[in-house]
Design a protein around this nucleic acid. Structure first.
Length: 421
DNA sequence: TTGTGCGCACGAG
DNA sequence: CTCGTGCGCACAA
């Protein structure tokens, strides 16, 4: 309930700020929500993060600062969809492209990709964008920011995420300025978010040259992908994870590492793809990366021991599978491979998981509808064609795609699994 | 003080 | 050129 309410509030706020020609940054959003609805900034931030995960809200790095966009309204002229389309974008094309492109267009937003120049400015900010994690951290910031609204807070997002990093890899010189304000008090240690950042922080230094702005970007990337989603996904895990996270670290880290490595190695090729997609939801991004990198034994690799990790990985694998199908025109086989994981997880999927899934699959707007209708994994299994086409009040086109490519496939794989069992 | 309106410059396409 | 964005300023409550 509250979630949908917050979604509304936040989206309204973003729209309002935009119409007012004010930058929809964390600080302003939190403030306005508080003013209008009396919601605490912390909560607002938390909700905002969720929305970002769902891609209902897009976090963008624009002109060196972080902005938030109403994904449903972002429909700019698609930039280089073509390029993107090659990768994942293709499928999302219809609905998401807009959003993605937006982000990417956002200009610097995903600069991370473009790193070349943006890095300078972006380093901090960039990082923010890219990393969905940033969002989480952003939350941290937000908290801070909320507590003490400072003009520079905006940057802090970046800072937030950087904060830890900086500690380790100090260098964020360009951003350095920003960090100062945000860094100190900003991060409220102890919060779940922090954990994420901490992990990242720890990881980054090792894998990347901390000094270069790029490093930051990479790091960000690194993290977002694996850790965040998993964490977020877990029901109720968000802040409680603290304890859990540690365990996860190892694996998530590994995943991150993989991503990083590839990115670095793959270098430009991937960057490009990413760039176009940067906006893409974390998942999507990861998926791509993973798809590429793990193309061989995704599920296997993914399905590893640690609980959290397993969960996360599974999700990813399932996503990947879906994506593959879409991209390739649907290869039943691949799906079958992942069936197990999918089916198992499906029952455990929360409303947020479902929404995240569809967001990642290229249907951010429709994901909102799933969330609104409180469709969790079990509900998803019970959905019929008519439910998807008419019960969610979503447009027919996307609805058909969602049902045929996702709902149906998930149900089929799930039930097939059960038959086997 | 805080919220709002908007002219204007910027950058992308 | 158009369009999205948001800074910076003036104004209102």
């Amino acid at each position: 309930m509250s979630e949908s309410k917050y979604r509304e509030w936040i989206l309204d706020t973003i729209d309002s700020l935009r119409s007012r020609k004010a930058r929809p940054d964390l600080e302003r959003i939190c403030r306005m929500v508080r003013r209008r609805h009396g919601s605490e900034p912390d909560r607002t931030c938390a909700e905002l993060e969720k929305l970002i995960q769902e891609q209902t809200v897009l976090k963008v790095n624009y002109k060196g600062s972080i902005s938030y966009r109403n994904a449903a309204k972002v429909q700019r002229r698609s930039r280089k969809k073509d390029d993107v389309s090659l990768t994942t974008a293709a499928r999302r094309s219809a609905v998401e492209e807009a959003s993605h492109s937006d982000l990417s267009n956002g200009d610097s937003a995903f600069g991370a990709i473009d790193q070349d120049e943006e890095d300078l400015e972006a380093d901090t900010s960039m990082a923010m964008d890219t990393d969905s994690n940033a969002d989480e951290e952003g939350a941290d910031e937000s908290r801070d920011g909320q507590d003490r609204p400072s003009p520079s807070r905006t940057h802090e997002d970046a800072a937030v995420h950087c904060a830890p990093v900086r500690a380790a890899s100090a260098p964020c010189s360009p951003s350095g300025a920003r960090p100062g304000p945000g860094a100190g008090p900003g991060c409220s240690p102890g919060s779940g978010l922090d954990c994420a950042s901490l992990q990242k922080a720890g990881e980054r230094p090792n894998s990347l040259p901390s000094s270069s702005p790029r490093a930051l970007a990479h790091n960000d990337w690194a993290y977002d992908p694996a850790p965040c989603p998993a964490e977020r996904q877990h029901p109720g895990m968000q802040r409680d994870k603290v304890a859990t996270k540690p365990a996860v670290h190892s694996e998530s880290t590994s995943l991150c590492a993989l991503n990083n490595v590839k990115k670095e190695d793959g270098g430009k090729a991937e960057d490009r793809s990413l760039s176009s997609d940067q906006l893409v939801p974390d998942y999507a991004a990861r998926l791509q990366d993973e798809t590429k990198s793990l193309s061989d034994g995704r599920s296997q690799t993914l399905s590893s021991p640690s609980d959290n990790c397993t969960f996360k990985k599974i999700d990813i694998s399932s996503f990947t599978a879906t994506e593959d199908n879409l991209l390739n025109g649907g290869k039943g086989d691949e799906v079958s491979v992942k069936k197990e994981t999918v089916s198992q997880n499906l029952l455990q999927w929360t409303v947020a998981d479902v929404a995240s899934y569809f967001s990642a699959a290229g249907f951010p707007e429709q994901a909102v509808a799933f969330r609104t209708q409180e469709i969790d994994g079990k509900s998803l299994l019970l959905m019929q064609r008519s439910d998807v086409l008419t019960g969610l009040s979503i447009r027919l086109g996307p609805a058909l795609k969602i049902y045929e490519r996702h709902v149906k496939v998930l149900q089929r794989t799930h039930f097939l699994e059960y038959e086997d069992l």
